[in-house]
Design a protein around this nucleic acid. Structure first.
Length: 152
DNA sequence: GCCAACGTTGGC
DNA sequence: GCCAACGTTGGC
């Protein structure tokens, strides 16, 4: 069982949007490292922290659950879509999605500042300088540490 | 295969 | 809006 952290700009798609939609295809990821995790690693039932990036207060706002394993990202096939990529075709898809469903919204955001302030999270990938991966794995210890922080 | 140019991410 | 960090592209 791997734990995950998925980033989204709330202007584009927030946890509230996921709560409203119940589930969604996590589309538009155009990075090979993240693609490989979507395609090969993320399993049904695994949990992911939902992180709001590029906003007034960045941080973890809740939890989503993977409810379908990797399959081709059809947004890459549509010329009208902002995520269109002509090098990805139905016959040879380059980009993948998983489906995620709403699981939980925290009472309070765990801000990036609060995450940085927690010495037990020094190894957390998103806290590493220059990290830009939109999907990262977490150790069970990191997961538990953050969960505990969510209830404080 | 190198690397400069360019585009994107994302915190501030 | 700025800009550091990073990934990708493409000429050579």
């Amino acid at each position: 069982m791997t734990y995950w952290l998925i980033k989204s700009e709330p202007n584009a798609y927030s946890l509230a949007d996921l709560q409203r939609d119940h589930k969604t295809a996590w589309h538009g990821v155009r990075n090979y490292q993240a693609r490989n995790m979507l395609r090969d690693q993320m399993q049904v039932g695994e949990l992911a922290f939902f992180y709001h990036s590029n906003t007034k207060v960045c941080g973890i706002v809740g939890i989503a659950e993977i409810c379908r394993t990797g399959y081709p990202d059809i947004s890459a096939f549509d010329p009208a879509d902002k995520y269109f990529d002509p090098s990805s075709t139905p016959a040879e898809p380059r980009w993948f999605v998983v489906d995620v469903q709403f699981k939980q919204k925290f009472a309070h955001i765990i801000s990036l500042q609060a995450l940085r302030a927690n010495a037990d999270l020094a190894s957390l990938l998103i806290l590493r300088k220059g990290n830009r991966l939109s999907i990262t794995p977490l150790t069970p210890t990191e997961w538990q540490t953050i969960l505990q922080q969510a209830t404080e």
